[in-house]
Design a protein around this nucleic acid. Sequence first.
DNA 1: GTAGCCTTGATA
DNA 2: TATCAAGGCTAC
Length: 461
Amino acid sequence: MVEFNRNENMDFFGLSDILKNKTRLSNNINANPEICDSSSNPNSPKIVENSELNKINNNELSKPKVKSQFNFGKCKVCKDKATGIHYGIPSCEGCKGFFKRSIEKNEKYVCYFGYKCVITPKQRKRCKYCRWRSCLAAGMSFEGIKMGRIPKIEKERAKFLMDDDELDEENQSNQLECVNNRNDPRVEQIRLSLKSLLNLNPSLDLFKSLNPYTLIPRTSYTELCITNSNENNIFILTLLKDRCYQLYKDFTLEYQKQYERAIRLIEKNFDCSIFSYNQTLEQVWKAFCLMTSDFTRRMVRTMKLVPGFDRFDSKDIATIVNERLFVCYGLCVTKLFLNNEFFVMLDSNTQLSKYWMEKLFTVTTSQKIFDYHAKLNSFRLTDGEIAILIPWLFCSTNLNLTNQELLKELHSYYTQVLYYELNLNQRNPDFFNELSRHLEIATDINSLVKSASFEDMVIRK
DNA sequence: GTAGCCTTGATA
DNA sequence: TATCAAGGCTAC
C-alpha cells in the first residue's frame, strides 16, 4: 500500500524547510524585513511567496508559540519531566515515543537482569521489558487517548496524582491556580485513592498477566471485593468507580465552593447568626422549596447517567427519589456541617443555618440532623467513597421497586464497588458495618424532612 | 532506536 | 480561538 505522506507533498512544493524552521524564520523576518519582501528575490517559487506572505499577513509567523504553563510533574514511567498527558498518564517525550513504537511494532521484550529493573531517565534504555511493564503499570493505554484541551477537573486530578516532593516544588513555583488545602486529611485521602485507581486502571491485558493480590492492598476487604471475581470484574469495578466519582464531582461542584466559603467564614470567626434575622420564615421556606425542586431535577438527571440506572422506568425512579432524596442531599452537603453550624446556601442570599433548621423542622429534628452529620463526618469519608455510597443507597434491596431483578443486580455491583473502594482506602474491618448502620438514620431523616410543611411552621411560631 | 521539536487536528 | 495530545521528522 502506498501511503500519502503529508510532508513529502510539502517538499514537492519546496515548503518543508520553511515550515520546519517556522520559528527561526519568524525571528529572521522580524530581524531583517528584507526577507519578507519576496518580490526582491525573483528566484523564489511563487507558491512560497504567497504562502509566506499570507502567513505574515495573518500574523502567524510573528506570534511566538506559547508553551503550556501547566506543570505535569514527573513522568509516571521513568520520573523524567513529563511534557503532558500521553496515552492517559503524565509522561515524558521518551516514554511517549517508546510506548508508541512498542505498540506499532508489537514487539515481545525480554528482561536479562532479573525482571526487577528500576526505570530512571538514565537507565530507561537498559531494559525494554521493564520499561514496557512500567508503562502498563503506570496506566498507559490507547483507551487513555484524548485529543484537545484538558478539562480543568482532569488537570486537578493530575495534580492529586503527583508525588509529595513534586507538590512541594510546585507550591513553591506557584504554577497551579487551584487551591491546595494539604492540611485537610480528606484531600490527602482523595489523592491516595486516585493514586491507587491510576495504578489499577491499565489495559485489560495487564490484568490477564498479573495477580490482583499483587496490585491492591491486603486488608479485610480484599477477599470481599475480589473473591469470585475474574479480571474483567475488576476492570468493571474501576470503570464504575471512576464514573461515580466523575458524576459526583460535577454534581457537587457548587457545594465545594460553599465549603470554601464556610472555611473562609470560620477562619475570620464570622458570626453566621447575623444572616438569620434579615429574612422572614416565608422567604426561607420558599428558598428551601426552590432548592429542593432544583436538587430533585438535577438528581434525576444525574441518576440516569449512573451506569445501570437508566434501565429503571419512571415509576421506579420516582420511588427512589421519594425514598432517598434527602439521604442523597445529606451526603452531598455533609461537609458543610462545620463547628455546630450548617453552611449550605439555599440561594445566593439564604443560608440554611442552624437557626433556620430549627424553625423549618423543629428543634428536635434539627438536632437529630446535626447529630447524624457529626457522626457521619467522624467517618472521614473520601469524596470517592461518598460518590459510591450514593448509588449504593439508591439500589438498597429494601426499596419497593417494580424491577426487583435489576435492583438486586445493581445492588450486587455497587456493593462490590464499595468494598473495592474501602479496600483501596485500607479501611478497618468494622468500618463498613458501622457506616451502613449509621446510614439507616438517614432514611428516618428523609421522612422527617419530607413531611415538613409551612402550615406546621406557622403554628409552631 | 531514542527523544526533542514541530505540525496537525480535536476539543473546551 | 486557545490549548493540548498524537504522530511525524530528524539529529544523535
